[in-house]
Every structure is written in structure tokens, then in C-alpha cells.
């Protein structure tokens, strides 16, 4: 069974977001990490591999700048078999449509039974690239996976698919694309041996010429959506913060404000 996991390198927002003195976001000051939903997707793939290691191959794919090699090395250290970095200047500035057609263009030149992506990345939060890749490839998609298992004989995948007030247990024929929620599992850590291996293993690098996609569907030019205006949000004007001596003083303060605003 061949599993491809798509991952994205994103700035870490967990340790707090860093701002420059002028109030704009300081991306360079934040650590670059593997997107959490993608990591859960990778863990799901590795668990399928654990069931039958000799007959399962996990390939990790990312698209980005050359430095995105780091997330592929991390994935290899966790236990993935192969890494593929899609990088080319002509691919820059892509929206979700162009990104998904580019990644689909790489997948068309690869073998896969199951493709796993994260539901969404913590920088863009769109949740669009996974379903869009599946459409470009003409294969079924199951989004928001909370649990996942494959039947190698029957060539099917069974997924617990989360909705707002329910879940569905869905079964799809392979090949299929599944988008993973970080609730799916707790990803394993890299092992020392794995880290050593990660730097022995080869990461394949593909430029634009290796992709099965038309020029009008990649990069900035292939993006139907265009940014009209972007700004780092100006933090809301800070309100009052008080440190009352007693609970009663705190209560009087809050009640006073609620009366002032005609809430009570």
C-alpha cells in the first residue's frame, strides 16, 4: 500500500504571536513547524504502516521554499520512507486553487492508494487545499477525519467523519483522499535512530518541469483570487485592567460597568 501525506511548513503560533515594533506580524521571529493537522495525518499513515511495515510505503510531500526540507526531515525521523519537496519560483504566490492544482500535478506522476492531508493549516485556515486536490485528481474525498482505518484486501478506507452535531462512518474505495483533524491521534516523537536515518534518506526535489499541470494553473497567474488589501490587524485598543483589593470591590466595579452600559 502506498500512502502519500501532504504537509505544510507553517509559523508556530502556540508560543504567542510576535509583532515588530510597528505592530506588524514578525514571521521571521516565529519558529517554523509542521502544521498540526498534517502531523496527525502523518501519524495516521505511520499507524497504518505499523500494521504491515513491509508492505506499506509512506511518502511525505510538501510544497514551499527550499527550507521546507526541514519538515520532510522531521517526517522521515518519525518514520516516513520518502520525502518529496516541490519547489520552484514560478509556483510562488499561489492561492488554494493554484496550490492544489500544482500538488495534484505532482501526485499525477506518483503512485498512491491513499492520500492524507491535514484539514487546514494554522496560517491560512482555509481547509480548501485537500478537497481541491481530490477534485483535480478525480478521486473521492472524506474531510474532517477523526478515525481512520484501511482494508488492504477490499481496497477501502473507513473514516469517522465529524460534523457539527454528529458523525458519519463513511467507507470509500481507494484511491481516496482523507483530511485529518488533529483530534485524530497524538503524533509520535522522532527517535534518535530516526533522526540519524532522516539525514541518510534522500529527499527528492521536483521543480516545475516534473509536474503534470498546465502553466495557466500554477503560481500567481494561475490563482483566481487576488489580494486587494492585506493588513496586520491593529490590536483593539486596550481597555481598563484593575486589581481590586477585595472581591466586593471587584463586584462593585463590574456591576458599575454593567449599569453604565445598561446591561442591568
Amino acid at each position: 500500500m502506498k500512502i502519500v501525506v501532504c504537509v505544510k511548513q507553517v509559523p508556530d503560533t502556540k508560543g504567542g504571536v510576535k509583532f515588530k515594533p510597528d505592530g506588524t506580524l514578525d514571521r521571521a521571529a516565529m519558529l517554523a513547524i509542521m502544521n498540526p493537522d498534517d502531523k496527525a495525518g502523518l501519524e495516521a499513515a505511520l499507524r497504518i504502516k505499523d500494521e504491515d511495515p513491509d508492505n506499506t510505503e509512506v511518502t511525505v510531500v510538501t510544497m514551499g521554499l527550499p527550507k521546507a526540507d526541514a519538515v520532510l526531515r522531521e517526517a522521515l525521523a518519525m518514520g516516513a520512507d520518502k520525502g518529496l519537496l516541490i519547489t520552484d519560483r514560478v509556483l510562488g504566490g499561489a492561492d488554494t486553487w493554484a496550490t492544489s492544482s500544482t500538488i495534484a500535478g505532482a501526485l499525477k506522476n506518483m503512485e498512491y492508494d491513499l492520500i492524507i492531508t491535514g484539514r487546514q493549516a494554522i496560517d491560512g485556515d482555509t481547509a480548501q487545499v485537500g478537497p481541491q486536490i481530490s477534485e483535480h485528481l478525480g478521486i473521492p474525498v472524506i474531510s474532517y477525519a477523526e478515525e481512520l482505518s484501511v482494508d488492504r484486501e477490499a481496497k477501502t478506507v473507513t473514516v469517522k467523519r465529524q460534523f457539527d452535531d454528529r458523525y458519519h462512518i463513511l467507507k470509500a474505495k481507494l484511491p481516496c483522499l482523507v483530511t485529518a483533524l488533529s483530534e485524530l491521534n497524538d503524533p509520535r516523537y522522532m527517535t534518535p535512530g530516526g533522526i540519524f536515518d532522516a539525514f541518510q534518506k534522500e529527499v527528492t526535489v521536483w521543480g516545475r518541469d516534473k509536474l503534470d499541470v498546465a502553466d495557466e494553473n500554477i503560481g500567481l497567474k494561475g490563482s483566481p483570487t487576488v489580494i486587494a488589501k492585506a493588513s496586520d490587524k491593529v490590536a483593539k485598543g486596550k481597555g481598563e485592567v484593575v486589581t481590586p483589593e477585595t472581591p466586593q470591590e471587584a463586584v462593585d466595579y463590574i456591576a458599575g460597568k454593567l449599569k453604565e452600559k445598561h446591561v442591568i
Binding site: W97, P131, E135, T225
Partner: peptide
């Protein structure tokens, strides 16, 4: 932008080739 719309929207936008802005 529900658990349904965030699955349906991107699949449709890819099919009919148009842009989709999320959330």
C-alpha cells in the same frame, strides 16, 4: 463555513474552476 460547506465549497470551486475565499 460549516463542516459541510467547508468540504462542499472547495470541491465545487475546483470543479468549475473559480476562486473560493474561505471563512
Amino acid at each position: 463555513a460549516t463542516a459541510i460547506g467547508r468540504d462542499l465549497g472547495p470541491r465545487v470551486s475546483a470543479r468549475i474552476h473559480t476562486g473560493l475565499t474561505a471563512d
